[in-house]
Design a protein around this nucleic acid. Structure first.
Lengths: 199, 199
DNA sequence: GTCTATACACCGATAGAC
DNA sequence: GTCTATCGGTGTATAGAC
């Protein structure tokens, strides 16, 4: 092994990255401490120098990875577009993100389920963050298109998160891009029923 | 142990049931062959007499459990109700089903993710079945309310499955029944945008 | 056919040399 | 601080008595 002194914070970061890589490529069940240190090129003992336990690493991984989620739902170029168009483009952008790295989203799902069983409050925090991101995007999109929501924005946000979750699960299962695009268009049309022009 | 001869088919059934019980209560990761036979009150050797491997049992469990899914989405009493009302009642019925046995749905999710990694075609079959059930329910509900769908029914069905998946995941995470009901109402309103009166 | 006993790989975690 | 070596435990699967 590479008998080199590495600051513990850096080691922890490397182990977190390695753990996510292993989970994404081979699943949470295969993410043993040994598999993680092999991925990171460290010895097994270094793992337990940086973390007390595998469980501690996984819990930290959940919070880290959730915090890193970006509001990728809003398209960059928004001028002159309708809200329905923004919804379609936003969801399509998410689909592209999913297609570009399916294993990443699958890893997120596995971590969520692990969290539900072992640390429910972490899972709740993760979903709270998703809903905040969705709320902000929905609010901004409405504001920029002279529209407002007829039901409370958090409720629409929750529904939008349902749609992205469903999109993720179903696409991971059947990889049917055409059906996914059709569904996105239908979802956007449906969501428009929850809006009205700004008075 | 209970040195009694049991037909192999019966043993397989008992092991499948026991496996699902263990997965629901303690998670797929905890569903070792030892845990399963303990739940079933058998010896470990009986497991490998009935199944070649743990993996074979899990694959069979996925197909069995999927086939047993019922179209619980349609309310029983439908006369004189609007389509929107039917959608609300159907989704609320699903929420009640989820609240009554959360661990069951969590087990289904864990099995789905296992299938995505190990036998994608099984997962695809599972979701295909969900979409068929949803399609049939949507078609019937529209027919009974003098309505028709403006987009292809399979597309609406896919969206509806997204909503139930999202409902499941988010509710398992935050157990917020009030928010779930608000979201169901919003989803029903939104879906109505995909209908028109029958000509 | 059904059991007990066991083989053998891998797990998380730690002791102790350096 | 970082390593190698090893502990005690559990995993899947099987051998062999009955």
């Amino acid at each position: 092994m590479a008998r080199v002194r590495i600051p513990v914070a850096e080691r922890r970061g490397a182990l977190l990255t390695a753990a996510f890589t292993v989970i994404a490529s081979r699943g949470l069940a295969a993410a043993s401490t040994r598999a993680i240190v092999a991925e990171a090129g460290m010895s097994l003992a270094s793992f337990h120098y940086a973390f007390d336990s595998r469980d501690e690493l996984l819990q930290l991984l959940i919070t880290e990875v959730t915090a890193g989620e970006q509001a990728a739902v809003l398209p960059a170029e928004r001028a002159g577009k309708s809200l329905e168009q923004l919804l379609i483009e936003g969801l399509t952008g998410y689909l592209e993100h999913l297609r570009a790295d399916p294993q990443r989203e699958q890893a997120m799902l596995e971590l969520t389920q692990y969290a539900i069983r072992s640390r429910p409050e972490l899972a709740a925090q993760q979903y709270g963050r998703y809903q905040e991101i969705a709320s902000a995007a929905l609010q901004l999109a409405a504001a920029e298109t002279g529209t407002c929501w007829r039901v409370p924005v958090p409720t629409v946000a929750r529904l939008l998160v349902h749609v992205t979750d469903g999109l993720t699960l179903t696409w991971l299962v059947d990889r049917d891009e055409h059906a996914a695009r059709q569904t996105i268009a239908a979802a956007a049309t449906a969501l428009m029923a929850l809006t009205r022009p700004r008075p």
